[in-house]
């Protein structure tokens, strides 16, 4: 049986194994530097469907099926499906679960959803409540833009601090037994709000949550930045990453050379006009399930700390002038 470590962290006695992964990404992501690591690049943002919402749902569902198919399993072989996305009432996850017919928990952690799902899947498996869990999260640029910002054809300038919601979906199969990278532990984040109200500067809203979770993780587990090959943050973007480094420096911790950010890795930030970098539930999902999963399997990295951050506001609370609460969850994955 796993155990709680320190204030907010957990460690697993029988670390669950990530036995399979699958990714589906949109055209911009498929033109980025990580293209070769993705299973399926779609050219058409509609994915052959009638609406973008349907397209996102199909991406989520297909990536889940593909992750199972890669290890010759059918949907009924999974005990549990954990999924989430950015849309209201997490409809992409709900509708894809309708198609998959696997017992389902819907999750919302905004862009942190993927790591939230990894943590929960590992806890459920190590606790003996499931043998095999399918987890996935997705985002779609065009469904997110209309919900959080402006219609795409409206002529507005995106501020330099704005992030580009990725069109991407990533899925993992996590099992009690098998071969593959293992999830050995993690840290559950607290909601942190430093009073940022600018919806176009998510990085600034999320960086304090990331710093909080990271420092707590080091304290709880007695580790430090040198304990890991890499510390991978989920879409803080350029601005958020700078802020995270500043916040950590103040606490006497300087892991700058170990830090990578999924939002900055997904696109060629020089050539592709993505401003501060990518974001969205699908961003960290696709970068981990595509790139990092394959590098861990090849033993290029021994252990990484994956920490995804999420901004937990809605357009309505923002219109009412509320500040943006944020959260960060972390998992440790060893090859």
């Amino acid at each position: 049986m796993g155990q709680k470590v320190g204030q907010q962290s957990v460690s697993f006695s029988q670390p669950p194994v990530i036995t399979s992964s699958a990714t589906i990404v949109g055209p911009e992501e498929g033109a980025g530097p990580l293209a070769q690591y993705f299973d399926w690049v779609i050219d058409d943002p509609l994915f052959g469907e009638k609406s973008w919402e349907k397209a996102e749902c199909k991406m989520l569902e297909e990536s889940g099926k593909l992750a199972l198919k890669k290890i010759k399993l059918e949907t009924q072989d999974a005990d549990l499906f954990l999924a989430g996305d950015l849309l209201n009432q997490i409809v992409s996850a709900n509708y894809s679960a309708r198609g998959l017919e696997i017992p389902f928990f819907g999750l919302f952690g905004a862009c942190s959803t993927f790591v939230e799902a990894m943590l929960l899947a590992s806890m459920l498996i190590d606790g003996g409540f499931a043998e095999r869990v399918l987890l996935a999260s997705s985002s779609h640029h065009l469904t997110a833009e209309r919900q959080f910002r402006f219609p795409v054809e409206q002529g507005v300038q995106r501020p330099a601090t704005g992030q580009w919601t990725a069109t991407a979906s990533g899925a993992l199969v996590v099992e009690a037994q098998g071969d593959g990278p293992r999830i050995v532990g993690g840290t559950i984040g607290k909601v942190v709000d430093m009073g940022i109200t600018d919806m176009n500067n998510m990085g600034a809203a999320m960086a304090p949550a990331a710093a909080d979770t990271l420092l707590t993780h080091f304290k709880d587990t007695g580790t430090n930045p040198d304990s890991y090959d890499l510390i991978v943050t989920g879409d803080l973007g350029k601005v958020g990453q700078k802020l995270l480094i500043e916040l950590l420096k103040k606490q006497g911790c300087n892991p700058a050379d170990k830090l990578r950010d999924c939002g900055l890795m997904l696109y060629d930030t020089e050539k592709q006009d993505m401003h501060a970098g990518g974001s969205g539930c699908g961003c960290a999902a696709a970068v981990f399930a595509g790139y990092f999963y394959s590098e861990l399997k090849e033993q290029k990295y021994k252990n990484i700390l994956l920490m995804a951050t999420g901004a937990l506001m809605s357009p309505i609370t923002c219109q009412q002038g509320e500040s943006i609460p944020a959260i960060a969850h972390a998992v440790v994955v060893s090859s």
Binding site: F150, Q157, N200
Partner: peptide, 11 residues
């Protein structure tokens, strides 16, 4: 007006 004021100023 857009560049020098609060970011919540929309078109």
């Amino acid at each position: 007006l857009m560049d020098l004021t609060r970011p919540s100023i929309t078109p």
